[in-house]
C-alpha cells in the first residue's frame, strides 16, 4: 500500500456557530508525487480545504494529517515547511518591494543563510523563467508574472506539496497558460505532490486524480476521463465540461462510436479516425 501524504479524516468546518457548515464530513487522501485537482463552483468549499491543509484554519470536527503530522497549533510551523501555497490574488501575496525580495521573504523567515539564499533565489526564478526580472517592482509585472514569482518563492523553500488555490482565476488567457505550463514543468522536474484548486475544467486534464466538491461534500473522486463523462451532472452543480467532451457527447448521441472519453482535440480526432477507418 502506498504511504499517504495528506489525509482528511471526516473533516467538518464552519466559520462560527451561527454560520453554515462549509465542509461536511470530508475524507480523502493525497499521495506523494501525485497531482490532484480539486474542482467545484464558487462557494463549494474547495478553497477552505487549502487553508485547512496548512493550518490557516482548523476544523471543528475530524483530523487532518500532513506528512505524518496531525495539523494543530503546535505543528503548523512544521507543516508549513512542507506545504507551499499560491493564492488567487497575485497582488495580495507579493510581500517584497522587488521580485528578488519577494522570493527572499520565505527564505528569510526560515533563517536560511544569505549565500544559500542567493543560490536558491536564482535557481527558483530560473525554474519559472523570471530570472530576468530580479529587480522589477510588482506593479511593473503582469498578473501571470506575479503568480510565477509566487511559485518561485515556494520552490525556493523546497516544499513537498504545492497548493494552487485558484491561482489562475484572476489572470488573462496568456497568464493562465503561463501558469499551467510552469506548474506542469515544475511537477515533472521536482518530486512533489501538486494540489490545484479551480473551477475551470480545462485545467484538470493533466491531473492524475480529480476531487469534485459540491455543497461542502466530496461529490466525486475520479480520473479526469471519468469526470468528463458526467456532463449533465457537472452542469447541475454549476460546472461546465470542455468543448471536446461536449462534442464527443453529441457524436455519441448520433451513433458515432467513441470508446475512450477524449481529453484533448487530438484524442477526439484519433477516435474519429478509428471510427472512420472502420467504415
Amino acid at each position: 500500500m502506498r504511504q499517504s501524504f495528506i489525509e482528511f479524516n471526516n473533516v467538518s468546518f464552519r466559520y462560527g456557530e451561527e454560520h453554515p457548515w462549509v465542509l461536511k464530513n470530508v475524507s480523502f487522501v493525497i499521495y506523494p508525487d501525485e497531482w490532484v485537482a480539486i474542482i467545484g463552483h464558487n462557494g463549494s468549499g474547495k478553497s477552505t480545504i487549502a487553508k485547512l491543509i496548512n493550518g490557516l484554519l482548523f476544523p471543528q470536527e475530524g483530523e487532518i494529517i500532513v506528512d505524518g503530522l496531525k495539523v494543530s497549533q503546535d505543528t503548523i510551523w512544521e507543516v508549513r515547511k512542507s506545504v507551499g501555497m499560491v493564492f488567487q490574488n497575485p497582488d495580495n501575496q507579493f510581500v517584497g518591494t522587488t521580485v528578488r525580495d519577494d522570493v527572499a521573504f520565505g527564505l528569510e523567515n526560515r533563517g536560511v543563510p544569505r549565500p544559500e539564499m542567493i543560490k536558491r533565489i536564482d535557481s527558483s526564478l530560473t525554474a519559472v523563467s523570471m530570472n530576468d526580472y530580479l529587480l522589477h517592482e510588482p506593479h511593473r509585472l503582469s498578473g501571470g508574472q506575479k503568480q510565477r514569482v509566487a511559485i518561485a518563492s515556494i520552490l525556493a523553500i523546497s516544499p513537498k506539496v504545492i497548493i494552487l488555490d485558484e491561482a489562475t482565476a484572476m489572470l488573462d488567457p496568456t497568464g493562465r497558460l503561463e501558469i499551467m505550463s510552469t506548474i506542469t514543468e515544475v511537477q515533472d522536474k521536482h518530486n512533489l505532490a501538486l494540489v490545484t484548486i479551480t473551477h475551470d475544467l480545462n485545467e484538470i486534464t493533466k491531473a492524475d486524480r480529480v476531487i469534485v466538491m459540491n455543497d461542502g461534500k466530496v461529490w466525486l473522486e475520479a480520473t479526469p476521463r471519468e469526470v468528463f463523462t458526467k456532463k449533465e451532472e457537472l452542469q447541475l452543480i454549476g460546472l461546465d465540461t470542455p468543448f471536446v467532451s461536449k462534442l464527443a457527447d453529441q457524436l455519441t448521441n448520433l451513433g458515432v462510436e467513441i470508446n475512450n472519453q477524449p481529453l484533448s482535440h487530438e484524442e477526439l480526432l484519433e477516435e474519429l479516425w478509428i471510427s472512420h477507418s472502420k467504415m
Binding site: 461536449k246 462534442l247 453529441q250 457524436l251 448521441n253 448520433l254 451513433g255 458515432v256 474519429l272 471510427s275 472512420h276 467504415m279
Partner: peptide
C-alpha cells in the same frame, strides 16, 4: 454543436 456533430458524422461515413 449538434449540427457540427451531424456534419462530422456524415463526413466520416460519407468518405467511406
Amino acid at each position: 454543436l449538434s449540427e457540427l456533430a451531424q456534419e462530422l458524422k456524415e463526413l466520416i461515413r460519407g468518405a467511406d
